[in-house]
Computed example of a mutant assay.
Amino acid sequence: MKKFLLFCVLLSCLYSATLNITPRQPLQGNSVKLELLTETAVKDARVVFAKKTVPLYLSAPNKYTTMLGTYMDWPTGNYTLTVSYKINDRLYEMPAVITLQNGRFDVETLVISQQKQAEGATDMAALSKENVTLGAAFRAWKNGSYVDGAFVFPLPNTKTPVTSPYGVQRHYQNHRGQPLYSWAHRGVDYAAALNTPVYAAQNGIISVAEQMQVHGGTIVIDHGQGIMSIYNHLNKITVKKDQYVTKNALIGYSGNTGQTTGPHLHYGLSVHDVRVNPQEWFGKKW
């Protein structure tokens, strides 16, 4: 916790503000909460972090909060952030440092079947179009918050095994063992049998609900203030775009659609357009 005394010479006044950062030493891919406490109302509260400007949202009188995401592939070490806001049109800035720790991610090889390739599951042009759609959704969050308490597990069995964790470096091959491409896994895969019910992890508005060629059946839920969850490879989608859903509401059924090696649920979380480790959000009230 840091406390700053801010002097307003022209108005002969003294302001104090406290900036809480949790945690200060996150693992690669983890989320960070900022909480700004002030003695008076402020305007234009925001933070600049990793060359990105993110708003701080009024969560209570004289209390402004926001969430930051860190990338799985950022180098470890110190990162500077700067919180700024205005009082009576005067700009105040509060610098701080977080220290990114090693997430220790594994490596895996996935073989895409000949049938999946024939279905277009490895079509890079299709993937590029889908990423444009998803990227636009992740950057179009609502400023209000729909979050109520902690995020919940999106499957009926909270002990469903993880088949592929967040951050693992994936090397894809075709059925002949020839390399196709590689990238880091931006979510978590759970061993959900075909047509297992999938539930909303939190309240929100459906921003994407469609079958995609590579991502398969896909749902994105906007939880407000930069927080969004994503559900991929669904066999069936039971919600529509712009529909409001409550936490634990049925949104679809798990499947084997798109680029998969078997039935499962891919679940992910985006924090201000940064894909973070979603598992740390379960049961945790930020």
Rank of each mutant, 00 (worst) to 15 (best):
V132L: 15
V152G: 00
S31I: 12
P95E: 03
T218R: 03
T238Q: 11
Y79V: 11
K285R: 04
G262T: 06
N157D: 15
Y172L: 07
K285S: 11
V168N: 01
G217M: 03
L11W: 05
M124W: 04
P179Q: 06
G224I: 04
Y253C: 03
G258N: 12
D123F: 14
Q259F: 00
A118H: 08
L27W: 07
H185L: 02
L234K: 00
F138C: 00
Y181I: 01
V271H: 05
Y190K: 01
H185F: 02
I251F: 09
K284H: 14
L6A: 08
V147D: 03
K159M: 13
T257L: 07
R176P: 01
N62Q: 12
K142S: 15
P61D: 11
T260C: 05
E130A: 01
G135D: 10
P75H: 08
T65L: 10
L250P: 06
K51A: 09
A126Q: 12
N256P: 03
F4R: 03
Q211I: 00
V54E: 00
L11D: 11
M1E: 10
V132Y: 11
G77R: 07
E108N: 13
L234P: 01
Y244F: 15
V239Y: 10
D148W: 03
V152A: 05
C8Q: 11
N20W: 05
I87C: 10
T196E: 07
N232W: 06
Q115A: 14
N203F: 06
L134K: 03
F7C: 05
K33E: 12
V97P: 11
D189S: 05
R46Q: 15
K86M: 09
N174K: 06
T22P: 00
P61M: 01
V276L: 08
G262H: 09
A150Y: 10
P197G: 04
K159S: 15
H185I: 00
T99A: 10
S229V: 07
Y181D: 02
A201M: 10
N157R: 08
A125I: 06
P26V: 05
N30C: 02
A50D: 13
N102Q: 06
L265F: 08
W281T: 10
G216E: 06
S207P: 03
T122F: 10
S113V: 08
T218P: 01
N248L: 07
G283A: 12
K159A: 15
R186S: 12
N235T: 00
L68Y: 09
Q243R: 05
Q117R: 14
L155C: 09
Y190I: 00
M212N: 09
A150S: 15
K236N: 06
V162G: 03
G29T: 06
P26F: 06
Y231C: 05
K284N: 13
R46M: 13
T22W: 05
V111A: 07
I87K: 14
F105E: 02
G144N: 04
V132D: 14
T122V: 15
Q25R: 11
P156F: 07
Y244V: 11
T163H: 04
A125P: 00
H185G: 01
Q225N: 09
N174Y: 07
A193F: 07
D123A: 13
N78P: 00
G204S: 12
G258D: 09
N143I: 02
G103K: 02
D148V: 12
D222Y: 01
R170C: 06
L27K: 15
V276K: 04
D242M: 10
V152H: 02
F151M: 13
